[in-house]
């Protein structure tokens, strides 16, 4: 019964993970390429070129995986990679920080 419970719960967060990966893969290539709020302000007031030089080169600048000719595909790939990295890293960080659940014996009781 415990296993059944566990499996059901797992399905719930996995659903959101699948949605996240789907957004990264299918929606990110269609994102608006217009400047965002800050970029727009920088353009309007003539200081956007300050951003041209980056102190540190990112590995995949501008969410593009190099080597993929198709721009949409390169963005989708970057999105999937970034989403997976975020999931993995935060799960590790969470594992390091979390305390063992004190009421695991009580099953589904929400701890305060």
């Amino acid at each position: 019964m415990f296993m059944v419970e566990r499996k059901k719960n797992m399905g719930r967060w996995i659903g959101l993970l699948v949605i996240a990966l789907a957004i990264a893969a299918f929606l990110s290539p269609w994102a608006s390429s217009s400047p965002d709020g800050l970029e727009r302000v920088a353009e309007d007031y003539g200081f956007s070129e300050k951003a041209d030089e980056s102190v540190l080169e990112g590995i995949f600048p501008d969410y593009v995986i190099p080597g993929l000719k198709n721009k949409g595909l390169a963005t989708a790939a970057a999105g999937i990679v970034g989403t997976a990295i975020t999931f993995g890293l935060l799960t590790l960080v969470g594992k390091k920080m979390a305390r063992p659940s004190a009421d695991s014996r009580k099953g589904e009781e929400v701890s305060d």
Binding site: N9, M10, W13, I14, L16, L17, I19, A20, L21, I23, A24, L27, S28, G79, G82, T83, A84, T86, F87, G88, L89, L90, T91, V93, G94, K95, M97, A98, R99, P100, S101, S104, S111
Partner: peptide, 19 residues
């Protein structure tokens, strides 16, 4: 943080990154 919340931490982060 309860250990059972850990996957939600990862998933929320992944969703926000993608969005």
């Amino acid at each position: 943080l309860d250990e059972r919340q850990v996957p939600w931490m990862g998933v929320m982060g992944a969703f926000i990154f993608a969005a």
